[in-house]
């Protein structure tokens, strides 16, 4: 591995996880820093999971969910999208750059978008360097 930046990825089972799978089966190349955790829906992600990831040494946290309107459970991604704003507000308070936290809607067929997003996110984090929490 060229660097040891750690990205924790929380991906929804029905869309973004499928997207990562598609990227993988199509052998698309992206930086290998992400550790993927599969969740059933982006709507089940609590802000505290993000905070825990940062506390345990993640340099960035990525959340992937279904496109708005495509949620397997109807409205889970709406809930997440509202929650993500709170997460942003709180991270700002604790001196964590808001660029370290990113969320994106990626469907199961969008392997290419997953690859692109990962590359972008990795680039952003490389610029920011490792996260230091006091």
């Amino acid at each position: 591995m060229s660097d040891d930046l750690k990205i924790v990825g929380l991906l929804c089972n029905w869309c973004c996880y499928g997207g990562a799978d598609t990227a993988g089966t199509a052998r698309m190349q992206y930086s290998p820093n992400i550790r993927i955790i599969r969740v059933m829906c982006s709507g089940r992600i609590n802000p505290s999971m993000i905070f825990k990831a940062f506390q345990e040494g993640a340099d960035g946290v990525f959340v992937g969910g279904c496109h708005i309107g495509d949620c397997h459970y109807d409205a889970g991604n709406y809930k997440w999208s509202r929650r993500s704003k709170i997460v942003e507000d709180i991270l700002e308070e604790f001196g964590i750059e808001k660029e370290r936290f990113r969320h994106e809607w990626i469907s199961a067929s969008e392997g290419e978008k997953f690859q692109r997003t990962m590359e972008e996110f990795h680039k952003t984090l490389t610029k920011l360097g490792p996260l230091e929490l006091e």
Partner: peptide
């Protein structure tokens, strides 16, 4: 949630602010 084993951090005082007040903030701020 702060009582759950994955957030209980008795060895660390003061606690990492984001893992204590951050969690509370996300619950009810």
């Amino acid at each position: 949630e702060l009582n759950k084993p994955y957030f209980k951090d008795e060895a660390n005082i003061p606690p990492v602010p984001i893992a204590f007040q951050g969690v509370r903030l996300s619950h009810m701020s």
